[in-house]
Every structure is written in structure tokens, then in C-alpha cells.
Amino acid sequence: MASSTSSNPLPSGTSVFTTVPDLFFIPEFIFGGLVWTLVASTKVLFANPQGWVMFVSVFCFIFTTLWFLIFISGANKSSIWPTLDVVYHSLAAFFYLSAAVVQAYVTISLKSVTSTFFKEYQLDIAAVVMCYVVTLLYALHAIFSTMRWKNSS
């Protein structure tokens, strides 16, 4: 007799808080929000590409919130969701890596004017560190989501 168990490996409801890849949602929120706040609190001293950093941090913050709500509500029961989970977190890791490199470039460029804008320089350094932390979190989430996806097929 055939079993009636679900083949969907993705958690839903409160079980999201107990699975390894999905535990990264909360730190992604916190550190992603910190990147957004730190970059928003600095002054744009010259033409620089921090707009990309803001786009990535706001986009990923909003999209991760929606993604988390989909998982909590249990709307992730279709067989396409494990693939979408891998794609989204891989894309977010790539975006954040590019944003971290851009933020590091801006911070290095500010080094020559540190005496005048020391507070902005410190905020930019913190933003660089947080960008790399969020990149690591999204990359780990993507790796564990890939492992879950491979095990489910």
C-alpha cells in the first residue's frame, strides 16, 4: 500500500524555527537591517555606488520578510518551492557579495578624508563588516537549502 506522506521537504509553521537552513532567517533580518541602517546613516560625500548597496539591502530585507511569511503560513507546499528556495538564497548571496565589494571600495575611498568625516568612515567600516556577515549567512542558507533540495529529489 502506498504511503500518504508529503514529499515536500520544506518546513512550515513553527517548524521553520527548528530546521537548519531556515534558522538563518532571523540573523538575515537582523544583520540585513543593520546594513540598511548603517548605509542610510552615512553622508554621500561624492559620487559613489552606495545606491546599489541600499537597493540590495532593502530588496533582500523585504523579500526575505515575504519569504519567511510564506514559510510560516505554510504556502510553500508546491514541489517548486525547494528549487525557488535555492535560487533565491543563491541570488541574495551573490547580490550581497557584490554590495559588500562596492561598500568596501567606498570605504577605502573615504580613507583619505578620514580626519574630516571620521564618523562616516566608522559607519562605512561597520557596514562593510555587516555586508560580509549577511553574505555569509545567505551563502550558508543557500548551501543548506541546496543540500535539502538534493536530498528531496
Rank of each mutant, 00 (worst) to 15 (best):
I62Y: 05
S115H: 12
G33A: 07
D85T: 13
M130A: 15
S57G: 03
F25M: 06
R148G: 01
T42F: 03
D124Q: 14
K150E: 10
H141C: 06
E120M: 07
P21K: 03
L10G: 07
F117A: 13
S112C: 08
L97S: 12
S98C: 15
F68S: 08
A142M: 02
Q50I: 11
V53L: 06
D22P: 01
N48L: 01
A40V: 04
T14P: 04
A127H: 07
G33L: 13
A75I: 04
F31K: 02
D124I: 00
L91K: 02
M1D: 11
P49E: 09
K150C: 04
Q50N: 14
K111C: 10
N151T: 04
L136Q: 08
E120H: 15
Y132R: 00
F29S: 01
I30T: 10
F61C: 10
Y88N: 01
P27I: 00
V35H: 09
T107D: 00
L10H: 00
F29T: 03
S6Q: 10
G74P: 09
L91P: 00
A104D: 09
P49L: 01
V53I: 07
S6N: 14
G13M: 06
I143P: 01
H89K: 07
Q50M: 11
L110D: 15
A2W: 08
Y138A: 05
M147Y: 08
Y105C: 09
N48S: 11
N151A: 15
S41H: 11
A93H: 01
L69E: 11
I70S: 07
M54V: 12
M147D: 09
S4K: 13
T116C: 03
L140N: 13
F25K: 07
M1H: 09
Q122Y: 06
S79V: 08
T64K: 00
V106T: 15
G13S: 07
W36F: 15
E120K: 06
V86R: 05
L137I: 11
W67R: 10
K119A: 06
A2S: 10
T64E: 05
I143A: 14
F94R: 00
F29V: 01
L45N: 09
I72R: 13
E120P: 05
A100V: 06
V128C: 04
A93E: 00
A126S: 12
V86A: 04
V86E: 01
R148P: 01
L38S: 07
S112V: 14
F71A: 14
T146E: 07
Q103N: 14
P27S: 03
S153P: 00
L91I: 13
L66Y: 07
S90R: 00
L66V: 14
F95C: 13
V133P: 02
T64S: 14
T146Y: 09
A93P: 02
Y96W: 15
N76H: 04
F71M: 12
P27G: 04
T37K: 11
I108V: 15
L38P: 08
A142Y: 01
A47C: 05
Y105Q: 12
L45E: 12
D85C: 09
T146Q: 05
L110Q: 15
L66K: 03
Y96V: 04
F144Q: 10
I30P: 01
L66N: 09
K43R: 15
A100W: 06
S115W: 10
S73C: 06
G13Y: 05
F61I: 03
I62C: 10
S79R: 12
L137D: 03
L136D: 06
S6W: 05
P27N: 02
M1G: 13
F55I: 00
T37S: 13
D22G: 10
